[in-house]
Design a protein around this nucleic acid. Structure first.
Length: 257
DNA sequence: ATGGCGCCACATTGGCGA
């Protein structure tokens, strides 16, 4: 089972690239973030024509998440249960016996922004819910844009980024809280090239200079981590014309049929 | 010292992302 997560930064703009990604990489399921589409504008027909089923939760202008899967999506739900939030950041479904949680975690903007405490509280609500969800679904994956670079090796210039949003200690604590639930960072299950990132600033030739961060992750519960055979970041997608600022992250899992 | 790109919307500038 090949899983991917990709912050598309507008599905309207990136739909041709997504269709090409599905055709060439042949993932079984993809979790999308920042679709920036209301549900009435979601490209259902195009994705179904490509052989995929879809589940989505969008809003105007900002946020928006979706699941794209070859197999049927069952038990779909939107949002963190019991956590009131207008922002469409979570959608979850079961695919071939695997629970897929698609997340677009808040950015936080800056440490002195109102959005920063919202981010921390949001992560606390996510962790509390995932604890229950893991108990119900041992085979569980949490995929998406976490807006946290977990360690200094996930940052192109740790000194320059020190104590800023996306790397601050409270944010990294929240990420570690997710790991403490029994989830594992699939990327780190394998040896990886140094300075591998998943996001690069559009400005200042960020990609060419590899001025990036690794903030998109696929976390796996123990049974899935044990079955994980590969994990990578598809940085070729960042080389395309009109790219998203994020590259897809990928994990392959070998489950018994 | 600042902003630098890209996307969106009751648009021709500002909010937001990261």
């Amino acid at each position: 089972m090949k899983l991917a997560a990709w912050n598309v930064n507008s599905l309207k703009v990136r739909l041709p690239q997504l269709l090409d990604f599905l055709a060439t990489r042949q993932p079984d399921a993809v979790c999308l973030q920042e679709t920036k589409l209301t549900d009435d504008n979601f490209p259902v027909a195009e994705l179904e024509a490509a052989g995929y089923r879809v589940a989505f939760a969008g809003q105007k202008t900002y946020n928006g998440v979706a699941l794209v899967s070859r197999s049927e999506l069952t038990d779909v739900s939107v949002g963190i249960p019991g956590y009131e939030d207008e922002q469409k950041r979570v959608i979850v479904a079961t695919v071939d016996g695997v629970r897929l949680v698609c997340v677009y975690c808040p950015n936080g903007q800056s440490l002195d922004s109102d959005k920063y405490p919202y981010k921390l509280a949001w992560f606390d609500a996510l962790a509390a819910w995932l604890k229950d969800e893991l108990a119900r679904h041992p085979k569980l994956a949490v995929l998406g844009d976490y807006n946290v670079a977990p360690e200094d090796r996930d940052v192109h210039d740790p000194e320059a980024w020190k104590d800023s949003v996306l790397v601050s200690a409270p944010e990294r604590d929240r990420f570690r809280n997710l790991l403490a639930l029994g989830l594992q960072d699939s990327f780190r299950l394998f040896e990886q090239p140094e300075k591998t990132f998943s996001w690069w600033d559009y400005r200042m030739m960020g990609f060419r200079r590899n001025h990036g961060l690794r903030i998109d992750h696929i976390l796996l519960s123990a049974p899935l981590a044990a079955a994980c055979t590969a994990a990578s970041i598809d940085r070729d997608m960042r080389k395309l014309e009109r790219p998203s600022d994020h590259a897809p992250v990928v994990a392959e899992i070998s489950l018994p049929a």
